[in-house]
């Protein structure tokens, strides 16, 4: 199994973070201009959409318990060598911790040395860093907003 775990603490409520994570106009600000297309209900389709409308990744909402837990079945769609690895699993959890919220992203796939996990692991720290600045300061530093090479 290939897996990584990313954690960040954000000075915002779980509700606010959930809203930012699941709303396209917020997503575009912290996700390299991309947005997600889903109603975020269990069993619903889910995809990440490039600015030009192409699908970057797609899958299904496996669990949805707002504002604490969201699990997504996740496959890359635009890089054939990643797409052929099939579906991975991404879990987001939000736990209140005093005045901050602990946001944890666990992204995994049932294979060793996964290229998918390597590719998304280049993006997540930037996305989380940008989400944190957006929620805490209202803006995103230009450096985090540069498109990831994934």
């Amino acid at each position: 199994m290939s897996q990584f775990v990313y954690v960040t603490y954000i000075r915002a409520t779980p509700e606010k973070i959930w809203e930012a994570f699941t709303t396209p106009q917020f997503q575009r600000k912290f996700w390299f201009g991309m947005h997600q297309d889903s109603d975020f209900r269990k069993g619903s389709p889910w995809r990440i959409v490039f600015e030009d409308g192409r699908t970057a990744d797609s899958g299904e909402i496996m669990e949805s318990d707002p504002p604490h837990r969201l699990a997504i079945k996740w496959r890359n769609e635009f890089r054939p060598e990643l797409r052929e690895e099939g579906y991975g699993h991404c879990l987001m959890t939000l736990e209140e911790d005093g005045e901050t919220t602990k946001l944890t992203i666990t992204h995994s796939i049932e294979r060793e040395n996964s290229k998918l996990i390597e590719a998304v692991s280049g993006g997540w720290p930037k996305i989380l860093s940008a989400l944190k600045s957006l929620l805490e300061t209202g803006s995103v530093p230009p450096i985090t907003h540069q498109r990831a090479k994934v």
């Binding site: 990313y6 720290p125 930037k126 860093s129 944190k132 985090t144």
Partner: peptide, 15 residues
């Protein structure tokens, strides 16, 4: 390993 705090540092000074 969780590199998110290192990205936060990079954003603040290297950005």
């Amino acid at each position: 390993i969780n590199p998110v705090p290192i990205f936060d540092i990079a954003d603040r000074w290297i950005g």
